[in-house]
Amino acid sequence: MSDSAKWYVVHTYSGYENKVAQNLEKLVENRNLQSLIHEVRVPTELVVEQKDDTQKEVERKMFPGYVLVKMEMTDDSWYVVRNIRGVTGFVGPGSKPVPLSPKEVEALGVEKRSYKVDYAVGDSVSIKEGPLEGFTGVVEAIDPENGTVQVKVSLFGRDTPAELELSKVQPV
């Protein structure tokens, strides 16, 4: 995959999100455009609905009327996406598509980062950033899915738990 591929938001008719995603994926496969259009997503979340004393998990669209597309923006890729039935256009000023920033992509949870740490539960770590910078603590738990680590730090003679980003600690 190329580094020039970015996430773009495509506006669709409401209720057509899944159909647009399916049609776009099919078109990419048929025309062999995998080098230009890498991924198509309709962001959803699981919601528990309660109706008449019964609970049921339902998958809901997080952004009705929108589809996320990871693609390299060229005239060809723009034309292909723009002319899928149900697409009204790209999100951006005028007809110029604007890619999502890395912070927006992370906030939406579209791409999951993988973390590799060289410390384990029970190891001593030094805190590199934040209000506890310079302190040393003991790793209590590591949560790679959320990118956090639980550290027990000794403050004023008392053990204090702290939750930090994985990147803000290093092994001693």
Rank of each mutant, 00 (worst) to 15 (best):
L100Y: 07
Y16H: 11
V69E: 10
K26G: 03
K112V: 05
M1H: 13
D52F: 15
V40K: 05
D123C: 05
A120E: 15
H11S: 07
E106N: 02
Y13L: 12
V98F: 05
V20Q: 04
Q55W: 14
V151I: 06
A5S: 13
P99F: 05
E140L: 12
K96P: 01
Q22A: 10
E29I: 03
F63Q: 03
V149P: 10
G89C: 06
G130A: 05
M73C: 06
I84Y: 07
M1S: 12
Q170W: 11
V151H: 05
P171F: 09
T54H: 14
L36R: 02
P99T: 00
S2H: 09
T148L: 12
K103Y: 15
P43N: 01
T44Q: 09
V169M: 04
E59W: 11
G86E: 05
E145C: 02
V81S: 06
E39R: 13
L24K: 00
D52G: 04
D75I: 00
K128R: 15
L155Y: 10
Y8A: 00
V153I: 10
P102Q: 04
Y16I: 00
W78R: 15
F135A: 06
S101E: 13
Y66K: 06
V42H: 01
M62R: 15
G134F: 14
E165C: 03
T88G: 05
E104I: 10
H11Y: 11
V98I: 08
G86M: 10
S167E: 15
N32F: 08
Q22R: 14
Y79M: 13
A162F: 04
G86W: 12
Y8D: 01
G92W: 04
T12P: 04
N146Q: 12
N32Q: 08
G92C: 02
D3H: 08
V98Y: 07
G137V: 02
K26H: 13
E163K: 14
K56M: 14
L155M: 11
R60K: 15
K6R: 14
F135S: 08
M1C: 04
L24E: 00
V117Y: 06
R41E: 09
L164S: 00
R85S: 12
T12K: 03
V121M: 10
Y13G: 11
S124T: 14
T12E: 02
Y119G: 01
V153S: 04
E57H: 12
T12R: 03
R113A: 07
V80Q: 11
I84F: 07
P43D: 01
V98W: 09
V69R: 07
V9G: 00
S126T: 12
L108W: 09
V139L: 06
Y13R: 14
L46W: 15
D123L: 03
T148V: 13
L155N: 03
D52Q: 13
V138G: 00
K6Q: 11
V58T: 11
A120R: 15
K112G: 01
K70I: 00
L166A: 00
S101Q: 11
E57Q: 14
R85D: 10
L33K: 04
D159V: 07
L46F: 14
K168E: 07
E129H: 13
S4T: 07
D159P: 12
E106V: 03
V40D: 01
L155S: 01
V9N: 00
T148D: 04
W7P: 03
V172K: 14
Q170R: 15
S114D: 09
V149D: 06
P64N: 02
V80E: 13
A107L: 14
A141D: 15
